[in-house]
Amino acid sequence: MSRQASRASESKKMNSELFTLTYGALVTQLCKDYENDEEVNKQLDKMGYNIGVRLIEDFLARSSVGRCHDFRETADVIAKVAFKMYLGITPSVTNWSPAGDEFSLILESNPLVDFVELPDNHSGLVYSNLLCGVLRGALEMVQMAVDVKFAQDTLRGDNVTEIRMKFIKRIEENLPAGEE
């Protein structure tokens, strides 16, 4: 209980430009080190996954949300609480599939991509792919296997940035969440 309270008050401010530049340096270094954009996307996803499995703890401690009853609730929590807490933006939740297992997050702005312009030879690069990994890893720790990918990206010419999340299955408690 006391840990929760202390964490909630303890959100130190950091300059967002430093964060954006750090992320940018990370992506360009990956571009330099790996042969093609696909590889880079994969690496970003892996890194995001590692962040996600840890971030979920912090999130649950800070936000004190309870268990989600259904996928819709999960979506709302992700959009209204998680994104707001960590990135300061509130995407909107739309485009639910009829079965209720897929939805889109529409981001009007994305702090990761301030000032970024993709050069022409990197059209296959999913710049913010880290976010997909984060979401995937975080949800895995609460027993949900999801598939996350970018459907639209302002960096590649689209009007908005859209993340598509699809629920795959519930993970059984005694099976370890697998990742290479």
Partner: peptide, 19 residues
């Protein structure tokens, strides 16, 4: 300054930013 912050821009190169 915005151009400089683009991680894909190498300082010292000519500026080719669309914005």
């Amino acid at each position: 300054t915005d151009v400089m912050c683009n991680p894909f821009y190498n300082p010292g190169d000519t500026i080719q930013s669309k914005s």
